[in-house]
Amino acid sequence: MKSAIVVFPGTNRERDMAIALKRVTGKAPAMLWHRDTSLPDVDLVVLPGGFSYGDYLRCGAMAAHSPIMAEIRSFAQKGGHILGVCNGFQILTETGLLPGALLRNANLRFLSQDCHLRVERTDTPFTHKWEKGAVFRTPLAHGDGNYTADAQTLERLEGEGLVAFRYAGADGTVRAEDTTTNPNGSINSIAGIISENTRICGMMPHPEDLVDPLMGGEDGLPLFEGLVEAFVR
């Protein structure tokens, strides 16, 4: 799998993502600058976490207008695979590549903690290493991760099975109204969604920060291993 990570001014989890990708591919991903106007030949583009443009105006809003985003839109149109994590997810919704929006956390505070995610769909390149309903642990770290969408969009997401991950208890129970299992107040406990063609995935938590037993576990590894398997060529 050939991968690339986009760096915007204020991006700060590009190194974490590079470590995770290198772990599964054996080679360092290409690092792209937000002003680049062409993409290298890659299978996967990652929009990593951070505070692009300081999260000023609205998280991801300014990054969505960076020169490289035109390339990423056309990469998406051509069926390219894109993973957006945290700020990257926010950028994907701001760009319109994924629906919905990320609001301020329900408790109005930055949250940095482990959470559990339940895998809702397993026939995608991002999730096929898990069993349906599998639960895995992952860190999250954000101030604006409270996913929302209008009623029609939500109905479509749920109806078409476009929810990839939901916040859950360690036992897999999903309770949207309970902040111990749905820490940021996301609607329907949605933690990550997928595009209709299953090639664009956006999620708030950071599986890339849990790929090494030394750092507390490898619970996030299946996502990256799954991507590599999807791109054996």
Binding site: S112, Q113, M215
Partner: peptide, 15 residues
């Protein structure tokens, strides 16, 4: 602590 990002950088062995 839960308001401070303690894992960014991917090198935090003990939080």
């Amino acid at each position: 602590w839960n308001q401070y990002d303690s894992t960014v950088g991917g090198q935090t062995v003990r939080r």
